[in-house]
């Protein structure tokens, strides 16, 4: 099937309905919607956990959207969270989004003890040097210009 055919194919979805409890390994090449309980390893391009849903275990996906309960080791490109994240959870993602608190003061998301690793490591900023303007741009503004000198050049 060509890429275009794939994109135009009807959405494939596996649903774990409310009242259903699944234990074991669930692997899918379509979207997985969890309204019930999944315990174990879950792997799919997209995982959606509804407010009534719960996923506990190792989750690997390109995209995860959770309004329910999430726990375990979670690895995804992008995650959108509300609901709750239980203790002993590690979340690794390229992007994470947690919506602002709603106006009725109800918490959008609660966290147990967990670790979040999202995007590039901020610790790289520790060695960040103060910026120094160089070159023509600074000179145009009449600022003093610091010119890079080759190693060993006289001061």
């Amino acid at each position: 099937m060509s890429e275009l055919d794939k994109s135009e194919a009807p959405l494939k979805q596996t649903t774990v309905e409310e009242g259903t409890q699944f234990r074991g390994t669930l692997q899918s090449n379509g979207q997985v919607l969890v309204r019930g309980v999944v315990e174990g390893d879950l792997s799919a391009p997209t995982v959606v956990i509804a407010e009534s849903g719960s996923v506990v275990g190792n989750v690997k996906a390109q995209s995860i959207r959770s309004e329910g309960v999430l726990a375990g080791h979670v690895d995804a490109d992008e995650i959108v969270l509300s609901g709750s994240v239980r203790s002993d959870t590690v979340i690794r993602a390229r992007t994470l989004e947690v919506k602002l608190q709603s106006t009725d003061k109800k918490l959008e998301l609660t966290f147990g003890e967990c670790i979040l690793e999202v995007g590039d490591d901020p610790n790289a900023d520790v060695s960040e040097a103060q910026p120094v303007r160089t070159g023509k741009k600074a000179a145009r503004r009449g600022e003093s210009v610091e010119v890079d000198k080759p190693a060993g050049a006289p001061a």
């Binding site: 992008e78 992007t95 994470l96 989004e97 947690v98 919506k99 602002l100 608190q101 918490l107 959008e108 998301l109 966290f111 979040l116 690793e117 999202v118 995007g119 590039d120 490591d121 901020p122 610790n123």
Partner: peptide, 11 residues
């Protein structure tokens, strides 16, 4: 109470 915007970097 948490809020994280897309694009933030966290450890």
């Amino acid at each position: 109470s948490f809020a994280f915007e897309r694009g933030c970097r966290l450890r």
